[in-house]
């Protein structure tokens, strides 16, 4: 069953078209990544699905609701981590969780949630004393305290140091193992590749590619071969790497020279992403 279905979603701010008809489906229990550079329309999309913004056109269904008109019953079932938001500096971690837990019919156990997001040792610490990464974990804990079926994460690790990002990734993976559906936006490729079951690349308000991370990389059939000849770097992209390599190596062996600095590389998601976004820029 699909948790989210979006068809031909459109949104303009004045004359600026932020979303120019995007469509995608997210299955229950899936981690779906919306990937794209700043200004691509990621936050607009996620905020329409959360019910913060109205749409100009298209059909959306989130857990059987139209978020634009949905009320408390919808909000019982979603958890939200906003891109920029803080919580009360003078409450403790545990108090903040308890306050939010009171808004839901069937909240999760507050101590369990605090343990899940790794803030055990900070239970009685005031929010203002937490580090940036810990505050983000608090945001996540508060998003989970209502035991949502669907969790929206808008750039959950932006501004993290590498260790904090790894920790956040582990946490998001543990959410998936709880069976939550997750919609995640990010402009970090490695994050999308690490976490998402499927992802859509958004650019200029349109989805330019969609699939699993490995589909996205294998969809591009090119392999890159690099070596140096007479001190010059040679880069060849080919869809027939075996034949080309045989030809190159045979030639080199026949001439009794070395293919210096030879490397054969499959494109990473980053290459695909950069080439995709570059193509569409032109």
């Amino acid at each position: 069953m699909s948790a989210i279905s979006v068809r031909d979603l459109r949104k303009s701010y004045g004359a600026y078209e932020a979303l120019r008809g995007i469509s995608f489906e997210i299955q229950e229990g899936e981690v779906f990544g919306l990937l794209g550079p700043n200004g691509a329309g990621k936050t607009t999309t996620i905020e329409i699905l959360e019910g913060y913004r109205t749409r100009d056109g298209g059909d959306i269904d989130v857990l059987g609701f139209d978020p634009e008109r949905a009320g408390s019953a919808f909000r019982e079932r979603i958890g939200v981590v906003l891109q920029h938001s803080q919580l009360w500096p003078n409450l403790t971690v545990a108090e903040t969780h308890r306050m939010f837990a009171g808004y839901y019919e069937h909240p999760r156990n507050v101590d369990e949630v605090i343990a899940l997001v790794g803030l055990d040792e900070k239970r009685t610490a005031r929010v203002k004393t937490l580090s940036g990464g810990q505050k983000r974990r608090l945001d996540l804990g508060v998003a989970l305290v209502g035991d949502p079926d669907l969790v929206f994460l808008d750039e959950p690790t932006t501004g993290f140091d590498p260790a904090a990002r790894r920790a956040a990734w582990d946490m998001i993976r543990s959410l998936r193992s709880l069976g939550k559906t997750i919609l995640l936006t990010t402009h970090y490729l490695d994050e999308a590749e690490q976490l998402a079951d499927r992802l859509a690349v958004l650019r200029g308000g349109v989805i330019i590619r969609e699939g699993t991370p490995s589909e996205l990389t294998s969809g591009s059939s090119e392999t890159e071969i690099r070596y140096r000849k007479d001190g010059q770097e040679v880069v060849i992209r080919t869809s027939e790497p075996t034949r080309l390599l045989q030809h190159l190596t045979a030639e080199a062996v026949a001439e009794g020279r070395e293919l210096e600095g030879l490397s054969v590389r499959r494109p990473t998601l980053e290459d695909v992403y950069l080439s995709l976004t570059a193509e569409h820029q032109e």
Partner: peptide, 10 residues
């Protein structure tokens, strides 16, 4: 952003 965050709760 607290008011906005509260709006996402029931």
């Amino acid at each position: 952003g607290i008011l906005k965050r509260i709006r996402a709760t029931p």
